[in-house]
Amino acid sequence: MSQDDRVESKRAPEPVGHYPHARRVGNLLFLSGVGPRERGSKKIPGVELDGEGNIVSYDIETQCHAVFRNVRYILEEAGSSWDRLVDVTVYLTNMKADFPTYNRLWAEYFQDNPPCRTTLEISRLPTPIAIELKCIATLGD
């Protein structure tokens, strides 16, 4: 693979490690894990942190809207689109509390032809967020 296969978004939040936002392989686009952070800052929509960076409270609905927006940014800048998503792995840090809201929003965002989906509960993510998406989409015909 070459550097030309890499996608670096100008609108999505910067990766928290040494990896691209996405890579093109044939007519597929593989996104790295995408969270709800805002580009150019450490601000996480819907999250209140204490002075040590621990989560005091969070709003999963706000985080879902933000993470879906960030995924859309990467897809569009790579030459794909929301309706070209074919597989999504979702990581939630609190399945019991957050799954109903997340599942309702998923149905709103994917009213027609939703992608395949796997949802997992994990104990934590690299930043103080409650949701992260790992996606595969197709590119233009």
Rank of each mutant, 00 (worst) to 15 (best):
M1A: 12
M1I: 07
M1H: 11
Q3H: 14
Q3K: 13
R6D: 06
R6I: 10
V7Y: 02
K10M: 09
A12R: 02
P13L: 05
E14D: 12
P15C: 02
P15W: 02
V16C: 09
G17F: 04
H18F: 08
H18C: 07
Y19H: 14
P20M: 00
P20V: 00
P20W: 00
A22C: 06
R23W: 02
R24Y: 02
V25M: 11
G26H: 11
N27D: 15
N27A: 13
N27E: 14
N27R: 15
L28G: 04
F30R: 02
F30K: 01
S32K: 00
S32T: 01
V34K: 00
G35P: 04
G35T: 04
G35L: 01
G35R: 05
G35Q: 02
P36W: 04
R37A: 13
R37Y: 06
E38R: 15
R39K: 15
G40V: 10
S41F: 08
S41T: 15
K43F: 11
K43M: 09
I44P: 08
G46A: 10
D50S: 12
D50V: 13
G51M: 11
G51Y: 09
E52I: 05
I55K: 10
I55G: 10
I55D: 12
V56P: 10
V56F: 10
Y58K: 10
T62F: 07
Q63V: 08
C64M: 12
A66R: 08
F68S: 03
F68C: 04
V71D: 00
R72Y: 05
L75I: 03
L75P: 02
E76M: 05
E77A: 07
A78G: 04
G79D: 06
S80I: 04
S81D: 12
W82Y: 07
D83M: 06
D83A: 11
L85Q: 02
T89I: 03
V90R: 00
N94M: 10
N94H: 14
N94I: 07
K96H: 12
A97H: 11
F99P: 02
T101W: 05
T101N: 05
N103K: 15
R104H: 14
W106D: 09
Y109T: 09
D112G: 05
D112L: 12
N113L: 10
P114A: 11
R117Q: 13
T118G: 01
T119C: 13
L120P: 01
E121R: 08
I122K: 08
S123W: 06
L125D: 00
L125Q: 04
P126T: 06
T127V: 12
A130Y: 04
K134D: 01
C135W: 03
C135A: 13
T138G: 10
